[in-house]
Every structure is written in C-alpha cells, then in structure tokens.
C-alpha cells in the first residue's frame, strides 16, 4: 500500500494542507478503493459531531431561512457530486496580509528546493518580429527574466517577466489541479509587500498564462489556493512564491 492511500483519514477530516489535498484528490480520481474509504471515514467522522451537539441560538434559524429564501438551489449537475461544495465567502477574506515578508522567506526556504533562478538569453533579436501573442512577446522580450520552481509532485512552474513590457507570464508543467471547489489565484507582490490580484489560473496541467496587471515593479509572484472565483486578498499562504529579485 503506497503512502498516498494512508491519507484517507486525514483527507476525510480536512487535515491536509492545500497542496497535499490537491495531490490527494488527483489520486482519488483514479483510486476507487480510496474513494470508498474516504466516504466511509467521512461518515464516521461526522458521527463524532454527535458528541459536540449544542442547540444554536434561535436567531440562527431565522438567518438561515431568510438566506435561503434569497437564492435558488443550483441547477443540477450530471457529472460529479461535490461533497464539499463551497461558495466563495467574502466575509472570510478580510483577514488581510499577515507578515508577508517572513512568509516570503519561509515559503522560499520550504519550496525553493530546486530553485533555479536564471537569466534567459534573449534569443529573439529585435529585427523581424512577427506577430506574437502577448505571452510570446514577454517570453521573447530581450529583457525577459525568469524564475523556475519545482513544486515536487505538484508540478513545475516558471514565471517570466519583462520589465520593458511591464508584463509577466507563468508557464506550468504537470501542475496538479486545484482542490475541488477551489481555484489557483495569481498575485503580484509590490515592493511594499502587498499582494495584488493578478488573475486566476485556468484548470490545466500545462499552460501559459499572462498575469493581469503591471509587472515591472513587482518583487515576487505568488500562487494561492482560493475559494472558487478567487479573492481580493489572499486567504491562505502561497503554495508557490517566485522571488523576482532573484531573477536578475
């Protein structure tokens, strides 16, 4: 039995971090045994809630019933059933930044195993530039600089930035899909360490995405796992952080 199978219990009780969860869900999609075990263990875990039962304040009932009267149930789906359908909850997103600078270091230490920061040799000379896509223009810009991150089993990603174009592009290889009900969101980190939303990554293992917004001043690019549809501010620690100051 591989190590992955042993994660059913932790997964059933939401005890995996976002990256582990994404990885395990990819495994679940292919492992019928684990799916069955997760279903049983979730059912078992839910029984533990019996020992914690506390009658809620009566006002909660009114709030819930008022809430549901204002939204219809989702249209039925014919594909899969999300066990933990979770709508984006704006109220949870006001947590703001929490000491990003130490985090930058921590995440860098934790994740940058295999970091190769390098300067791309400008292979596209100025003359005779054919019509290029926005991504190609960045990738082929004379001042393109890149940061590569090996995310282990989660895949590999490269951020390429061109200051002259004021744009950045992320290219992924074998990237695991975001957890169910979640999206990968991209962020620029400004020189004063604020995270600025730079768009969502479509669900695809291998892709090239141009980040939204101005890239010239950014000191880093981060990826976080956010509720579906994304957030205005990161609600979790980045799963990957590309330190652009290391790229030159």
């Amino acid at each position: 039995m591989s190590d992955l199978h042993k994660l059913t219990g932790a997964y059933a009780m939401d005890a995996l971090d976002e990256l582990e969860r994404a990885r395990f869900e990819q495994h679940l999609a292919q492992c019928e045994d684990c799916r069955a075990e997760v279903a049983e263990l979730r059912e078992t875990a839910a029984l533990l809630a019996e020992t914690a039962a506390v009658a809620p304040p009566p006002s909660l009932r009114d709030s819930v019933l008022t809430g549901i009267s204002q939204v219809r149930p989702l249209a039925p789906e014919v594909t899969t059933i999300p066990l933990t359908q979770s709508a984006p909850t704006r109220s949870e997103q006001s947590t703001g930044r929490r000491g990003w600078a130490p985090l930058l270091v921590a995440a860098a230490l934790a994740l940058l195993v295999g970091l190769g920061a390098m300067i791309v040799a400008p292979w596209a000379d100025d003359d005779e530039v054919p019509r290029l896509t926005a991504a190609e223009q960045v990738l082929q810009a004379p001042d393109a600089e890149e940061v590569f991150l090996d995310l282990g089993e989660a895949g590999r990603a490269t951020v390429t930035r061109s200051k002259s174009q004021d744009k950045a592009v992320i290219t992924t290889e074998d990237m695991v899909a975001a957890p169910e009900g979640k999206d990968y969101e991209l962020w620029f980190m400004s020189p004063d360490e604020e995270f600025i939303a730079a768009g969502l990554m479509p669900d695809a293992a291998d892709q090239t995405v141009v980040l939204d917004g101005s890239a010239a001043e950014a000191i880093a690019v981060g990826i976080t796992v956010e509720p579906e549809g994304g957030s205005e501010q990161p609600t979790s620690d980045p799963i990957a952080l590309f330190d652009l100051t290391e790229a030159t």
Binding site: V64, I68, Q85, S86, S91
Partner: peptide, 17 residues
C-alpha cells in the same frame, strides 16, 4: 454562527447535488 449559516446556505444551494 457564521460558519453554520454559510454551511446551510451551501447545503441549500447544492442540495441538487
């Protein structure tokens, strides 16, 4: 209370699933 309310709203919305 907030968590519970959000969960019920989700349950209502995704009851079809």
């Amino acid at each position: 209370e907030e968590v519970t309310q959000e969960a019920y709203l989700d349950a209502w919305r995704s009851s079809t699933r």
